[in-house]
Write a protein that binds this DNA or RNA. Sequence first.
DNA 1: GTCTATAGCTGGATAGAC
DNA 2: GTCTATCCAGCTATAGAC
Lengths: 187, 187
Amino acid sequence: MKESSARTRILDVASRLFYEQGYNSTGINQIIEEAEIARGSLYNHFPSKRDLLTAYIQQAEDRWFAELDKFLATLKDPRQKLLGLFDFRIERQLRSNFGGCLFSKIGAEVPKDDLNAFELVYHQKERFKIYITELLQQMKLSEPQALSQEMLANALFMIFEGATAIASISKSDQAIRDAKKIAESLI
Amino acid sequence: MKESSARTRILDVASRLFYEQGYNSTGINQIIEEAEIARGSLYNHFPSKRDLLTAYIQQAEDRWFAELDKFLATLKDPRQKLLGLFDFRIERQLRSNFGGCLFSKIGAEVPKDDLNAFELVYHQKERFKIYITELLQQMKLSEPQALSQEMLANALFMIFEGATAIASISKSDQAIRDAKKIAESLI
DNA sequence: GTCTATAGCTGGATAGAC
DNA sequence: GTCTATCCAGCTATAGAC
């Protein structure tokens, strides 16, 4: 008796390997082997490797925001939630041994002609930017700011993305901790 | 009579293909073909594909900073130079059709065990951070800032990196233009 | 330096039997 | 759903002749 369906196991194994080894460097054969499913079964659920990639990104986005919500659930103050974003990143980067942002990795790796993948990566980034924007709107900004609300959201978003990239390259969470300090002085 | 040496042509072609198609997706065969050199000749100059990657990153770093210096040469004011960094990025991203940061791409693409490549990528990032820091030190900061000099350099660095990543994913220079505006309000 | 041939492997994908 | 066999293309790299 299988604990999980074939589809679930394929996607779970593929997700782990895509993130750890990269999409291009992960072969169908390895996925089949580690997921312990049949070759035909994989192609039954996912007609091509690209379809597997699509499912991977979409599931990753769903989980990413679900985990983020959960992580911030105990915090009530929007400002604390905004700063908590960086703690969330630190926690995830430590857990993945500084593997970097899943979505940015795909964006950097897939060929330019895979517009579908780019679209999905872009979707996650935009959604996260909106996430930041909404938290900012919930804050009562004490004083007139140097930056507009929109630009402030942009700034936090970019600092977050930049810090994640640097943390992955330097294999250290220092950049994200610095980013949090910068965010503290901005909001 | 060859206009350029075999080594130069190999590296030029490989550089173009690595950036446009990705390192993993570019085969030795294609490099040989487009560079119009013999198979044995490539392996004579570069014993393995990894050696070619090393030379690629190193040459790219040298050129990157040389082009940056040239781009900023006409500007005398350090603040204008700092803001010019973003114009430099915009210009490069437009020229490459939003291919993203060459070094970050490699960082996202190569397997984790290629420590050499990571080291080289990290080197470029650190050098650029120092570049920003030195420009900041040349500025006479008018008022006491909310952020220390070091943190300000960090912030500019991360915004720069984040904006580049977003520009590549969104295929638009809007993020970098926003980043410049943010930088203007910070310094 | 050039050329060709080829080893040895792995890639994604298909087909057929059960 | 499972299994195995296989196609064909591509990969990195080596060897040998010129």
